[in-house]
Design a protein around this nucleic acid. Structure first.
Lengths: 152, 152
DNA sequence: TTTCTTGCAAATTCTTTGCAGATTA
DNA sequence: TAATCTGCAAAGAATTTGCAAGAAA
């Protein structure tokens, strides 16, 4: 049974509060709102998109606060930057291990979760380069939506 | 037996010339020099580094030509952009399938080649998102050089 | 000669920073 | 209250663009 979205969001906000306290960082309205914005989206939004959405609820928020907060949230390990070779950084608040499908036409980013029991096999000689902290598999291609558009 | 580096470089330059002709693009000194600079480096250089090196041989070359040329070479499929969440784009002219180890301390990028017969197994449900064009595995961690420095 | 490219300079885009007032613990 | 955080404005870094002169086909 899938957990209710609001319950999940509240849980994550509580985790954020704890993480802030642990690091001696303050729990501010901006941090909560910006984090919630990333956490509730599945579109891996960029800074500007987050700014536009948060501004609806906090009209005085500024772009630089978005950037500073995203950097703080990243340090707290509450969000991470999705690799993409595009100029705008994009963010993801889902910290469970997963990979991404990146559409080269529309730049949409889709999450790819491994099935239970499935595990990504790393190249045999990967470990000889050093200590591995993080593995990121990115699959680039044309997403179903864009394929449909092309066919028409 | 490993092919001689200069022979390899010349071959690749010939490929570039053909690719240009095929696309109706002109074979210019700048394109050749910039391509060679990327192709002979194994450091996955950024635009500025390429600019500095090319300038030694072509003092009048400009930064914007570097950027424009890198974009053209990318379109010609002669080089590609290495994913990294850092502000500077980095380039690789080795188009044989391989992956990358990215050091989070020194930002060095190491190539990871699969052993003969080895193959990367994709997540089972990867194909349901669309047509796959390119698979990119990025392993982040601390490289051996940096580990040694830390130990000291 | 005709079209594509380059160099120059200026502009754009995304992101970061300094500082004084506001907010959290 | 004491330190962190925010908004404002301005700066910064990386990259892109318009245009006229230059080079390739």
């Amino acid at each position: 049974m899938i957990k209710d979205k609001d319950v999940y969001l509240n849980e994550r906000v509580e985790q954020l509060k704890l993480a802030c306290q642990k690091q001696g960082m303050r729990v501010t309205q901006q941090r909560i709102e910006i984090f919630k914005e990333v956490a509730k989206s599945c579109a891996h939004p960029d800074a500007e998109t987050i700014y536009e959405s948060v501004k609806e609820r906090m009209p005085n928020v500024s772009v630089d606060t978005i950037y500073r907060t995203l950097a703080s949230l990243e340090e707290l390990n509450m969000i991470f930057r999705v690799d993409n070779q595009l100029p705008k950084a994009r963010f993801d608040a889902d910290m469970t291990p997963h990979h991404h499908f990146l559409c080269i036409k529309c730049n949409e980013v889709y999450d790819i979760f491994l099935e239970p029991g499935e595990e990504l096999v790393l190249p045999k000689n990967a470990e000889q380069y050093g200590t591995i902290k993080d593995v990121n598999l990115q699959i680039r291609g044309i997403c179903k939506k864009c394929l449909e558009k092309i066919e028409k």
